[in-house]
Amino acid sequence: MIAEQSHITDIKTPDRSQESSFGKKIKKSIRIKERIIKYFFAVNGAMALVFIILIFVFLFKEGFKALEHIGFLDFIYLDQVQADGSVKRVYEWYPTSAEARYSLVPLILGTLLTAIPGTIISTIFGVAAGIYLSEVANPKLKEFLKPMIELFAGIPTVVLGFIMLAVGASFFNDLLNPVNRLNAFIASLGLSFVIIPIIASLTEDALHSIPNDLRMASYGLGATKWQTIRHVILPAAFSGVSASIILGFGRAIGETMIVLMASGNAANITANIFESVRTMTATIAAEMGEVSQGSDHYYALFFIGIVLFTITFFLNLIAEIVISKMRKKNTF
């Protein structure tokens, strides 16, 4: 839309009918290369997008077929007819027996029994490490330690699983005499190695992002270092620290190799941390190689996949929202 021309009278308006040299200089150029490059990038973006969508679609398509083949309630329990005619309700994962049982209850409990203790241990050590790095350690040491944490976060999980198997299991077997040599406790210790760096570095970030004025204000009022941390820094960083714990928990739920190698893999229903358990991830890992495509068992494993996907996706989403809220709050 072009508005009407103004009329400032004392200055001559140039004659528009006559094309000026300037007009020629700024005429449209056809930039074919520019356009091709743009489409090239767009195609790549679209392809990446397609893959992302495919993962969602494909996983859910295969997973939901499980509901047709097996039924939702069968993922919780099965009513078994006993020899004497009575009916017994069983919560078992036994997909290869003649009367296949697909209850996810033992697997979910197994996952929680490794992930929750793992997250608790990691919270204690991780938050302490985060506070140490941000508030206690001298800056030079911190410069060195921060990349170290990152380095440890990069250790392949199969290595941690191996360490728990080769060293941890024997050590705690002698020390605590657990029910099973490989158990939820061993697995949760292994998980801690993965989660501690996550919680530590995100906690450090959260604490570090708190403006120094706040610290100075507290010290100015005569507070000690600990009082400042306890009453000023930690409350201000609370959401960031929570987000790091949520992310760590999500990671613990989704971790495969450590639990596969160290948890014992027996689908027990137990609250005893020193017994063997079997997690959702380890179940997929151990059984996917053997199933035939299109069998109930195959779809059941995909169903576990979407349960895992959904849980971790939402945990990540929550953490992200919490973190972005914190960012907004902390930008003054």
């Binding site: 989704g254 971790e255 996917m288 971790t312 989403l317």
Partner: peptide, 19 residues
């Protein structure tokens, strides 16, 4: 994309096999 980075790697294995 951010959240996909946090999806368990075993789930990608499922995707790889099925897809």
């Amino acid at each position: 994309i951010n959240n996909l980075a946090g999806v368990p790697s075993i789930v990608f294995g499922l995707f790889g096999l099925g897809f």
